[in-house]
Nucleic acid binder design. Structure first.
Lengths: 242, 242
DNA sequence: TCTTACTCCGTATGCCATATAGTGTAGGCC
DNA sequence: GGCCTACACTATATGGCATACGGAGTAAGA
């Protein structure tokens, strides 16, 4: 377990001898997040983060073992607290959870560039997982099922966020200038003989409008499918109980 | 549209004057993929790719505009042809599709590091999308629904592949040495008071074994949920038709 | 034959993460 | 109260890497 993980959990090591630390992992991640929010992930350099904190670049290495670790710490620190299940029906909570997660990712698109698919180890990210597990356990599912569903829902949030961000023309390597370009490009490339399904979809305008509301409708549609599948499982379980 | 996209579609520009090109985007991507397979993504450098082709690093820039573009081209070229729908029932085909896609990603784990969530523009990746759209259209869904489902399934494949790869201890920044570590680390970090759901899941061993067959069972379970949701939609559609 | 477009090369530049070797500071110990 | 030692931070150096720039050769067309 890298030392930075302990620090993410607030366990800054006791210092006995020597000068008191002028920094903390928290201050460092805050600075880095500020830069990422303002200038994108490319703006986050060891030197830029250090400059923002008025220290030398090398000072950061007392707190993180590498830039990689800094990025990991950033992704956790950037997460807001998850929505609370409260008295919500599981379906409403799962909807709220997934939607909030997606919105969070779209607020901080640089997160999408920092492999959002690796298992979380920080307190913020794990509290998201925790709340979901609680809600699913209340709905009668086993922990194993809960973990699996959590993976699925978060993957869905990440992928739709990523798609939305790409289609909005976010800093992207696909070379698309504006929204809607994607469909146009595909139409030019995919000939109907080799790509019948794709061509049909293009003809039907399935890639057409990338307006906000379309994205959102799509998001709800796909999420609905997932929840339907989960619902089937839950009712099955409930019947078994009886 | 970047020039490299046209080249990915086999449209190498006609050359009239001057010496005949000794390279092609295909040869370059093949070399790069060979390196990535052998040494991981970190081994893919403009210089290493060039060396494998016996040219100078700068020669590559006649074919790709940047390393980014090379990576994009690699991800498309690495994809095998998708499974064919044939006469399969949609549910069987979707299963085969998702499973093959996941397996492909696990065969080439470096793909997981090259943002696998951006919209595809290459012929190989789009043929995967196409076949899925065909199958879904046959099952009676609209193109819009098909695109959405395709997104969801591929996200599922990517995320489970990514998880499996992480848990296997693949080149990973979580700092986990071996399989099973993840659960152990979480147990040490998450106290039951603040993480009731997570603690319960840990106690139940939901993160315990990362053996191959467990992963696979989990994969099938989550996929089943998705397919159940899709099935509900398809039967609803079928009834509307009548 | 000469021009010209085009391919590939050698070298130079600049950015960055990070190794190394200090330098000062402040607690603990005598 | 003075020394020792651990530790936070700094300055400088190094090396890897993408890529800009300016050639130099090469072969089709005029």
């Amino acid at each position: 377990m890298p030392a930075v993980v302990a620090r993410m959990w607030g366990q800054e090591p006791r210092t006995s001898h020597g000068p008191r630390p002028s920094l903390s992992l928290q201050r460092i991640t805050e600075a880095a997040i500020g830069i990422a929010d303002a200038d994108g992930l490319a703006g986050v350099r060891m030197s830029s983060v250090a400059a923002r904190l008025d220290v030398s670049p090398m000072a950061l290495y007392g707190y993180v073992g590498s830039k990689e670790e800094l990025l990991t710490a950033m992704t956790d620190a950037a997460a807001p607290p998850p929505p609370e299940p409260g008295e919500l029906h599981w379906r409403d909570y799962l909807t709220a959870w997934t939607r909030s997660y997606r919105e969070f990712l779209l607020t901080r698109p640089w997160l999408l560039e920092v492999s959002p698919l690796t298992p979380p180890t920080g307190p913020r990210a794990l509290s998201w997982l925790d709340r979901l597990l609680v809600a699913l356990s209340r709905a009668g599912l086993t922990p194993g099922e809960g973990v699996n569903i959590a993976t699925t829902l978060s993957a869905y949030a990440v992928s739709t966020a990523s798609l939305a961000h790409s289609l909005r023309g976010g800093a992207d390597e696909t070379g698309m200038a504006g929204p809607g370009d994607y469909g146009v490009i595909l139409t030019r490339l995919a000939d109907p003989a080799h790509y019948p399904g794709l061509s049909a979809a293009l003809g039907a305008g399935a890639f057409g409008g990338a307006q906000e509301w379309v994205e959102d409708a799509d998001f709800g549609f796909g999420l609905g499918l997932l929840l339907d599948g989960i619902e089937a499982l839950i009712t099955r379980r409930a019947k078994e109980e009886r």
